[in-house]
Design a protein around this nucleic acid. Sequence first.
DNA 1: GATATTTGTATCGTGCACGATATAAGTGAT
DNA 2: ATCACTTATATCGTGCACGATACAAATATC
Lengths: 144, 144
Amino acid sequence: MTNGEDSLKLSNQLCFPLYTASRLVTKCYQPLLSKLDLTYPQYLVLLVLWEEDQVRLSDIAVKLQLQSNTLTPLLKRMEELKLIKRLKSSEDERSIIISLTEKGIALKKEAEWIPESLGEKLNLSAVEAKQLYQLLYKLINSAE
Amino acid sequence: MTNGEDSLKLSNQLCFPLYTASRLVTKCYQPLLSKLDLTYPQYLVLLVLWEEDQVRLSDIAVKLQLQSNTLTPLLKRMEELKLIKRLKSSEDERSIIISLTEKGIALKKEAEWIPESLGEKLNLSAVEAKQLYQLLYKLINSAE
DNA sequence: GATATTTGTATCGTGCACGATATAAGTGAT
DNA sequence: ATCACTTATATCGTGCACGATACAAATATC
């Protein structure tokens, strides 16, 4: 972007808008998700499970790029909310299989309007959203 | 992006790469910042102060889009690390003025190589970085 | 087949982030 | 001056995120 003296200016750093945008988008979800009594990371877990039920904890960890020490308590809270079940795998006793409960499955219908609702909050055109999407994935894949 | 059935797919959501990219970039900073005994939000506060010393807590809050209940303990920890001073404003006894200590000022020199070092970790071209930067700011400004 | 290594999950400690709420200082209207 | 109102910061409680570490099940090695 720039070199030398200005490199430490907040306005010249990519890190800052990334950090701010991420928190801001999470914040946009908050009022929508609180109606479903969900937090943002819990919603991400459900997105995984709505696509494919019966997933190992370690597979969720890979998909969401989260570690076991983050996921374990998060999933335990979701279990307390009766959204998911945590069962040991019969094939490998070390693995925990996460599956949706009836309540977790039913929640999908209630969540279907969320993406659209969020799209309205963020004033990006379809082209811009796609561009941003691609750049972010390039960034994610570039740094391992 | 897409409508109907697929809208809840993780891979179709802008929120997820944003969230992941932000955590990933923070993680890239971590080894660099730990050498200076700093966390990422602490580094952001220093970026603000290196640009302009003697800033009110509330002004830092606006610049970093953080709330007082996040900043207060964060700044107290930085005070314990002898990086900053927290003094009540003489003009308005409600305000806290944050200023750099000698140690805080000296740290700027040690941090100057960080932006460049991070640029190497993230495999984005200058054009892509600028594009991403602009899209993120558009997003931030669009949603208030 | 006892031992070493790897893998999957959990535990512990620290530091954000933020909603809700409290408190004290300043401001304004009566 | 009094009382409502606003503003600046702090406190409290909850939920991530992650480094370090522990531990048990599975696998590999000898």
